[in-house]
Design a protein around this nucleic acid. Structure first.
Lengths: 261, 261
DNA sequence: ATATCTATGTGTCATAATGACACAATAATA
DNA sequence: TATTATTGTGTCATTATGACACATAGATAT
């Protein structure tokens, strides 16, 4: 009975009109969050099967590419004005096997007319987002998924299609940018301690850093402001709370930390 | 008369079958060359109108995205095994106005059935290539263009659609990568002098560099080999000829020149 | 109360990288 | 043979980096 209701519903209330979408094109978002000294990625569990997937969606014909990514991010996390950056277009032929499409149509009891839509070859544009974990109140699954949850990047579940590779590449991009551009404004709360910032770097780089040299370097970049407050309640000496200087941070984002020439 | 022949021809011998191409998707290549101490870009002059365009093409349904870019590059330059890198997906709605499509169909006297193909909204994936100018014997125009020529990046003609912006972004990407990764292997001849290498850097950065510090830094990267030969025939002291060390160069490409951490 | 433990804040030193510059060597030309 | 312009190499002060030591302050144990 339940299945019947679902079936009827599914055939009628598709959350998008394929005729209004750019054919063969999708966007996928690798949404990174930082929690308990661990880098997490937001994933969706598909309704059927035991696979997880990146939050993604199609691009409306009258919608800019970036806008589509922003929409997906907003629909899943409720967040707006987030650091979101395109990092790669994935266009291997093998990445959209017909078998996958057929399963989708069957399992969702979609109108057979939609089969051709899902059987298309898809190119996907990868975006990565850096969000503040605690600000994502209740991640929302989409039409094709039942749950939405954070996973540590070092312990990902089985992923749909080439989504594992997409995450790898996003991580690689973040790691590279970390070396030359500031990071943290979108991953950390407004006020944070130097050890917390260092933990973020160590997690992303997967490498221990010297506490004292790290602080010296970060301060030399001139993007941090000492708030004058301290994080109380810890088991030890109360560390200084810092905040990012928005102007200098933006400037460092544009120009990079230090030109070699 | 000529028009008639052309018309008939055009309707029959389209160089691609739209049904075999990924809809609404193209690749565009920003092909950089270095000649007479100037950075050049390879452009195509459209058959009608006074506009120029980047070499580009459509993506066959059974063709990987990267492969399509390689094909375009090969068709225009005859070159293979070239440094070619995807750098951005351009997906603004306004970038493919219908007026442009209509003009294309009309001017090429294409079969009206093709009008819908060209009226689609297109997303294009931008690639940039670094090629050795002298190795491009005779650049070949494509089906929609009459000539193919190099232009200095500081003196570009009027360009189709958003191709100006695409070049800007490619240039920006190259400039950024220049700071952290080796460059030159694909832009310079096999053997080159230090002043020639410096000229490449100065052109790309649009900035004068100190001769002595430049040499010290380049040598410190350990990607250059002294061939032991000299460039003879110049008006002055014969400069040493260098070549790139393929192994170290590749490694530097992967890892970047110098990790900050 | 006092000692202890541990994370945090700050400083020092040797080494390496960088920026600014000077002088010697050499090939063509006058 | 002198001149000129370009290339090759070196020096020095300044700055950045890596490795490390010690002082400080909250919480807990005695």
């Amino acid at each position: 009975m339940l299945l019947c209701i679902f079936t009827a519903n599914a055939c009628m209330d598709l959350p998008f009109d394929p005729d209004q979408c750019q054919p063969g094109l999708s966007v996928d978002c690798v949404i990174f969050g930082f929690h308990e000294n661990d880098l997490k990625v937001l994933l969706l569990k598909l309704l059927q099967g035991n696979e997880w997937a990146l939050p993604g969606g199609f691009v409306f014909l009258d919608e800019n590419l970036d806008r589509a990514a922003i929409r997906v991010l907003h629909e899943r996390t409720g967040l707006e004005k987030i650091f979101l950056q395109q990092f790669h277009a994935f266009g291997q032929v093998e990445r959209s096997p017909v078998t996958h499409a057929a399963r989708l149509v069957q399992e969702h009891s979609l109108h057979p007319g939609l089969q051709s839509w899902f059987e298309q070859r898809f190119i996907t544009i990868g975006y990565y987002a850096l969000v503040e974990y605690s600000q994502v109140e209740k991640p929302q699954p989409d039409y094709f998924s039942e749950t939405c949850a954070w996973f540590p990047v070092r312990g990902l579940p089985h992923l749909m299609l080439d989504h594992q590779a997409i995450i790898e590449r996003a991580l690689q991009t973040v790691r590279f940018q970390l070396k030359y551009q500031p990071i943290g404004l979108n991953l950390l709360p407004e006020k944070f301690t130097m050890p917390e910032l260092q933990a973020l770097y160590e997690t992303l780089l997967d490498q221990k850093l010297d506490r004292r040299n790290f602080q010296r370097k970060m301060l030399s970049y001139d993007v941090l402001i000492r708030t004058g407050e301290f994080r109380q309640g810890g088991a030890h000496k109360a560390p200084v709370l810092y905040a990012f200087d928005p102007v200098n941070y933006e400037q460092a984002l544009r120009n990079g930390f230090r030109s070699v020439w």
